[in-house]
Structures are given as structure tokens and as C-alpha cells.
Computed example of a mutant assay.
Amino acid sequence: MDRTGSAPDGTPPAGTAAPGRVRKGRAALVVALRCVTTITILVAAYFLLPFTRHDVDVTNLALGLSAVTAVFALQVRSIARSAHPRLRAVEALTTTMPLFLLMYSAAYFVIEQSAPGSFNESLTRADALYFTLTVFSTVGFGDIVARTEPARILVMTQMVGNVLAVGVATRILFGAVEAAVRRQTSGTRGPG
């Protein structure tokens, strides 16, 4: 053992954490805090921002979906460049999925406010979020049902988005993680 207490091969003494594990633990804590903060901000914004009947139309929905896609693309890029790609993938999911779900929840809330009767009951923001999560999880309790054609079309777009989010997006994230891990194990670093 040398002055630092490490063995001649540089390994730390028994009972102490390796520096890499400490860094990874700190990184995991930072990611967890960012995830909780992001979700908290998104949910708070959903409940606090004023939505008007003009906030839901095809253009705004397309812009919202484009924003979710852009955030997702930036997240995939950051995974490929990250020292901790698995942690970045978790963070990407906890950023993108709530944004996607809250966007639909806001759309359901606004469509019910602008065209009462679009659903079989009036939707509060909490009801709209509940309905969104019910559609996302494919549980479909049937207690809230889209009754008008625009509401049903909106629900169908979420159903397609759910399949894409769960299937395609998850595969893209796993691919980015695998590429980053391969890069790290081969000893090369990506740009940036």
C-alpha cells in the first residue's frame, strides 16, 4: 500500500468505493434530481398555465408534437455523447414522456372547454390528465369517453403516438445507449 492507502496496482483498499463508482453514483443522483425537477416543472406548468380555446387546433398540436420530437432528438444526441449513456436515456424518457402526455392532456382539457360535450363528462385538468394516462396505459376504464369526432380524432392521434413512443422511441434510445457503450468500451470518444 502507498501513502493514499491504495494497493500497488492502484485499487482502493477494501471497504472504500472506487472513484468511478463514486462518480457514477453522483451522476445518478444528479440525473434523478434533474428528472424530479423536470417532471415537477412540467406538471406545475400544466396546472398553472392558462389554456384558451384557441390553444388546441391542428397547427398547435403539430407544433407541440414537433417540439416533443425535437426534445427527443436532442436527448438522443446527448445520449450518444454522454459518459453515462444509460443515465441519459432515463433522463430522456423522464423529459420526453411527461411532455408528450401533458401536451395531450392540455389538448383534451381545451377541447372540452371550447366544445362542451366532447367527452361524456366535463373535464377538469386533473380529469384530462387521468384520461390521458388511461389512454396511454391502454387500461381504458371507460369512465371518460370521447363523444365528438374532433375529440375521437385527438384520442386516436394519441394512441398512434403511444405506440410510436413506446416502440420506436424506446428502440432509438436503446440504440443510442448501445452505440455509446460500444464507443466507450472501444476507447474512443465522440465529438463534444
Rank of each mutant, 00 (worst) to 15 (best):
L63S: 05
L29C: 05
A18S: 12
R189V: 11
G10K: 02
R183I: 00
M103F: 10
V163W: 03
D2C: 03
T4Q: 14
R26A: 12
T157D: 07
V71A: 13
T16M: 12
L133H: 06
T170Y: 10
T16L: 13
T124E: 00
G167D: 07
N162P: 00
L164P: 00
T134V: 11
V58S: 08
T38Q: 15
Q113L: 04
V22Y: 02
I172L: 12
A80W: 08
A179M: 05
I79V: 14
S186D: 14
V135H: 03
G175D: 01
V160A: 15
A73F: 07
L133G: 07
A92L: 03
R125W: 00
L33E: 07
F100D: 04
V168I: 09
A106C: 09
R21T: 12
T69K: 09
G5K: 01
E91K: 09
P85G: 06
A176K: 00
L99T: 15
L74D: 06
A151E: 08
A165Q: 11
R125E: 01
L101M: 13
R171D: 02
A62Y: 08
A70V: 10
T37V: 09
V22S: 04
T185V: 10
C35G: 09
R152Y: 03
L48I: 02
G167Q: 10
I172D: 01
T37N: 12
A80F: 06
T4C: 00
R3G: 04
A165N: 08
A80H: 07
G117W: 06
L164M: 07
P98V: 07
S114H: 05
G140A: 10
P8L: 12
L29R: 11
Y46G: 01
S122T: 11
V110G: 05
T37W: 15
T4M: 08
A89L: 02
T37Q: 14
L74M: 13
D9N: 15
T185H: 11
T95S: 14
R26L: 15
D2K: 10
T94K: 14
F141S: 12
D2L: 11
V22H: 02
T185D: 11
G25F: 03
T40L: 13
S137I: 01
S82M: 04
F109H: 14
T138F: 10
M156V: 13
F109W: 11
L74G: 15
T157P: 03
G192L: 12
T188N: 08
I41F: 15
V31F: 05
C35Q: 13
A83V: 01
N120Y: 06
V22R: 10
R189Y: 06
Y108P: 03
N120F: 07
S122D: 04
S186H: 13
T52E: 10
G187L: 03
F131E: 02
R21Q: 12
F100T: 00
M103I: 01
G142E: 06
T185I: 05
F109P: 01
L102R: 07
A106V: 09
P12R: 12
A165P: 01
V181A: 04
